[in-house]
Design a binder for these strands. Structure first.
Length: 485
RNA sequence: GGCCCCAUGGUCAAGUGGUUAAGACGGCGCCCUCUCACGGCGCAAUCAGCGGUUCGAAUCCGCUUGGGGUCACCA
């Protein structure tokens, strides 16, 4: 049978990498087996609906390269793919269970439920007391006739255990007495998430339910629903959680399930900070899964090829920005010239780089950046040449002092003025100057580079700096610097 | 608190009864070098604890401890 997985986000306007990682594994699970990846929007919560949030989901999936085969925007045989457009579907199923005695109408008010919860002993949590589970026919009729609002709750077995199998976690059992009579249909007639989820997964033919391990403890309820309807239970793949670090009020570091409060872990946030979508995907694929070999840098196609459910781990993983940055840098290093240029161009233009220097820039910048927005800083010396501290000319490691700097700058200036403004030519000329004077290359190169750049740290060496600046600007700066020595 | 899950260096992790316990990020050091990177080499750092089972446990079992998740008319 063809595998069908689904990604079923709620439109909250924000997708953090934990959600995206779930989507990724759903995608990989399907695609590795040539299966179908479905997008379903779960918008049954009227109060939390955020305008435009659905678009964020489309944009994110598109940027991430996780293209769905069926969904609200592209259709499919199992539509509609938005829960709010499926509302008529759920109620009959709930009524069916009521008719069969597997569910019941509950007329309890929210207030009563709140009081019930408040009555729980300190530190304990108590569930619904099943007050309406055994109302008489007369009582029910009377309430209905009076127009009393109600919800539909599922009757949970009072004893025994529910056991299920998960592809990652194996055999898991829960005592039924711990299961609450969960609400299927809310007062407003909308289904709850859990109910809609089961109905939709079944009617959409989802074969593999891939989701975070926070659902491990609600899965028995799902299964009891599948059983109540006599439906086949899907294959479960629960994923270890992605954790974020925060600091508590005592200054102690704590880890918890990744969420909004963990700062910029939103996919779009990371993209805006300069992380490449493919690098983010690559990195989060490694959070909870490891390939057979030692390869760490993957394209999405390679992930599809190598993904293996059996290699998903059980323990939670902490999101690490350092490693993400490294993965990002690796992806940059693997870029073709065209790809690199397309990302770098805006920064080149802002820095006033001449087109004939694009290749040189790629060569010197590619190994030096982790994210493209670092280009601004790397190229800043081209624009700013202000009063720098002349103590920069004193550099132990290159054996430069104020005196030698002045001496060799004086010697280098006429040489530079006389040669072709060519990277090789400049480099050779400076080396020859050092050789003729029997000093280390650095004694010449260091002051020339500093004199032109005005800063100690530059991408590339003195020849590269001079080329980027151009002949005129370079000579102007060197003269100005020399005048200060 | 009940229930459920998890447990290899600071982090991500390989490992499925016999290994000097991979690799990567980060850290540190050295080399390369006109700076910073890149690259190369190297170092420090892990099987939570205690009991079993076994000729032999990171690997199997139990307990303890620690961490996480979950207990809504949210999804």
């Amino acid at each position: 049978m063809k595998i069908r997985t689904r990604f079923a986000p709620s439109p909250t306007g924000f997708m953090h990498v934990g959600n995206l990682r779930t989507a990724l594994y759903e995608y990989l699970t399907a695609k590795h087996e040539n299966g179908t990846f479905v997008l379903r929007i779960e918008d049954t919560d009227q109060e939390r609906y955020v305008e435009g949030a659905t678009q964020v989901i489309y944009d994110t999936l598109k940027l991430a390269g996780l293209s769905h085969d069926e969904g609200p925007d592209i259709g499919g045989e199992y539509g509609p793919y938005v829960q709010s457009e499926r509302l008529g579907l759920y109620k009959p199923y709930a009524e069916q269970l009521v008719k069969e005695g597997k569910a019941y109408r509950c007329f309890c008010t929210k207030e009563r439920l709140d009081e019930l919860r408040a009555s729980a002993p300190e530190g304990e949590v108590i569930g619904y007391d099943r007050h309406c589970r055994d109302l008489s026919e007369e009582e029910i009729e009377a309430k209905l006739a009076a127009g009393t609002p109600y919800v539909i709750r599922q009757k949970m077995p009072l004893d025994g255990v529910t056991t299920y199998h998960d592809l990652v976690y194996g055999e898991i059992s829960f005592p039924n007495e711990d299961l609450d009579d969960q609400i299927l249909l809310k007062t407003d007639g909308y289904p709850t998430y859990n109910f809609a989820n089961v109905i939709d997964d079944h009617t959409m033919g989802i074969t593999h339910v891939v989701r975070g391990s926070e659902y491990l403890s609600s899965t028995p309820k799902y299964n009891l629903l599948y059983e109540a309807f006599g439906w086949e239970i899907p294959t479960y793949i629960h994923l270890p959680l992605i954790m974020g670090k925060t600091v508590d009020e005592n200054g102690k570091e704590v880890v918890s399930k990744l969420s909004k409060r963990h700062g910029s872990t939103g996919f779009m946030d990371l993209v805006n900070e300069g992380y490449l979508p493919e690098a983010i995907i690559n990195y989060i694929a490694l959070l909870g899964w490891a390939p057979e070999g030692t390869q760490e840098i993957f394209t999405l196609d390679e992930l599809i090829e190598q993904f293996d459910i059996n290699r998903i781990s059980k323990s939670p993983a902490v999101f690490d920005y350092d490693k993400l940055a490294w993965v990002n840098a690796e992806h940059i290093k693997n870029m073709t010239s065209e790809e690199f240029l397309s990302h770098a161009l805006p920064f080149y233009e802002k820095a006033g780089i001449r087109p004939d220097c694009y290749d040189l820039c790629e060569e010197i910048l590619k190994p030096r950046i982790t994210r493209f927005n670092e280009l601004t800083d790397k190229l800043a010396f081209l624009g700013t040449f202000t009063d720098f501290d002349i103590s920069l000319f004193e550099h132990k490691k290159s054996k430069s002092t104020l005196e030698t700097s002045k001496e060799y700058l004086t010697k280098a200036l006429p040489v530079l003025e006389s040669i072709d403004w060519d990277r090789e030519a400049i480099s050779e000329a400076m080396k020859k100057l050092a050789e003729d004077n029997e000093v280390k290359n650095s004694v010449v190169m260091w002051p020339v580079r500093i004199a032109a750049a005005g800063v100690a740290v530059t991408p590339g060496g003195c020849a590269e700096v001079l080329i980027l600046l151009g002949r005129e600007e370079s000579l102007k700066r060197i003269k100005a610097s020399l005048a200060r020595l």
